[in-house]
Design a protein around this nucleic acid. Sequence first.
DNA 1: GTGAGTCCTG
DNA 2: CAGGACTCAC
Length: 722
Amino acid sequence: MDSPTDLFDDSSPQIRTFTPGPSSADLPGVHTAPGFRPPGFPLIHHLLQPGGGPRRILTANQNEVTATQMEQEEGMMEGEDELTEVKRKCNDTVLMAEWSQDVMKVKRMKLECRQKDKQLEDGGKRREGRRREREELKEQLEEARERLQALQEKVWRAFGEKAEKKEKKRNHQRCDGDGDEVMVEDEEDVTGEMFDEEDIDGAEMEKESFSLLSVSHFDNFHKRKDELQKDRERRIERGREGDMEGVMEGSRLWLECGGLTRGDWDGGAEDEHEEGGQKFAQALKLELGSAVARVIDRVLRLYTEMMDHSSPPAAISFHPSDQAHDGGKERDGWMGLLTRGRVEEPMKEKEDGDREQQLKKLVPSGPDLSMPLAVHRSPDTRKTFPLLGPPLPTNINSSHPNLPLHHPSLTRPTPLPHPPLMPPASHPKETSSSTSFHPSSSSSSSSSSSFPAPPPPPPPLPLPLLHYSMQQLFSRSLHHPQLPHLAPSRKDYLNSDPFLEFSSHASFPPLPFLGHLDPSLTRHGVRERERGVRGDGSIRGGGGMDGGELYLTAGGTQEGLSPCHLKKAKLMFFYTRYPSSNTLKTYFPDVKFNRCVTSQMIKWFSNFREFFYIQMERFARQAVRDALTRDGAARMGRENQLRVGRDTELYRILNMHYNKSNVYQVPERFIEVSEVALREFYSAIWTGRDSDPCWKKGIYKIICKLDSPLPDAFRMPGCPVG
DNA sequence: GTGAGTCCTG
DNA sequence: CAGGACTCAC
């Protein structure tokens, strides 16, 4: 380990941590992924680049040396995968020049060999000559291989030694800048976004796959080589723990440019003490856990995407037609339940039926009951209800006179008996059809949708189970008992509890998975780092973790709120817009509530409402504008029945805001409530009530009565997946 | 006084 | 999304 060779040998597997094979033996979850990765390549790269095309080192100084050429050499040098792997990522001009020399040398040898072979073909000593040439070639290849190893050792040393703070900062500057020589990828982007499931594309993947090693680290290689070597030896002699050493060094290579080393990690890194090393190991574990989980997600996503072409998951439904089988519900029956694989689904359906009947008793059912919530308007509505129709809130309230805040109205909301909110349609035959509402839309005679409906959002992925399971597994596998000593800079993000005892992510494990967990694991552990707790100052992006993807929470309660809690709160907003503090405490059992936390969560929902109402008002005003500007009031509005279907822009915006990862099936109830709110705003604006400074309060009152009970799934820690 | 909520700002 | 100011109800 101390010798360069040993270092190199020990370090290589660290680089290829995610490479299937022996080196990944310590990553149990890796093997759960479908094995579509050919061995010998970094897992991440191939995950992100299914096509597996030749990778090109994006440097300007190595015009003739391409990754393709390297791979040609790779084929000639079996067993050197790790070396070429590192080399492929190293863009140092000098090293690459040496490398190119080797390449050219080998190529020359090959060429010569062929020529000689050709000549020998004419002679009778062909076989002997070829044999001899082969032996020579073997020797030369051995030489080249040794040289290659030497170069790799240099590379490794260069990376392994880049630990000093100043050096890091310098590197960071280089990384941040747009280098002329190389495309440098922000490591944070790698860890945080490379698995972003929403806007990832092949090019970015390819870029990111190269970002683990950056050319910038070689800029001063020759100047600092000796110094770095000495520094490294000093550090090695300092006697860090043997098993951690490889991890530390490997992760240094991996995290060098940016990411944790650039962020808070860099802040406390005098990196001359064990503390720093442990911090680094800490951070490395986080990164590895996150990366592996995301890789697995990505793999399965790609896999399922491929499978989707032939057989889309039948359980995933975004269309009303798919809900037809939903137990004897009516056509537009409530979907306030998770639609996939819920154990309690049958019971819920039964309950829904009961609630529906209760509601029917409560509210006189009329012909509207089966109508869509879109404003139903008769052709002569305008005559009956001129511009200033009866105020809607009154009608609404009459519809829900006794609707408690959490009335179990999982059934379809009571149709609004109030008069149409929109001007009457001039074409009676189209009045029965509702039209998707789109703020940027223009008039259309289409009966179904006047606007080109955006493509329906991709169905929620049935993968998070594995995702979070992997986090669990991997986190557990990475558990290191001797890492509680965190630098103050790091402890700022954490509570005093042992940080690494995140054997279970209480905030995140999927509910089905929770059932298989040892209760002891979910009941004790550590609190996650505090994030954004009022009074502590908001700490955003600490550790480079992308919002809500990896939460190092344990089963116990925690004082802080994590991005996961935020995500869960947003999903809860689909059901309840005005949760009481007791409700919050009920549905966040893993949160230790205090005044700050409670008010923060209240504030969250306040912000959610704000966004919700802003969108409603915006779209309502747009609808009013459209109605007024469209050929005069006489013809406005017939196809502009306010509706928040799943194919509308408004729905897309809401879903993007509250369900960004789209892993949750937006309950139909929320859509209905949104439609109610939209129509209320429209009505208020249309009737001019918005001139009243308090004109929104009536709407708020209406909406607050439309809260639904939360599914039991939300009672569990973690984000429900629907 | 405290909690909850809204509005505004950054 | 958070902080601050403000209102309102208890």
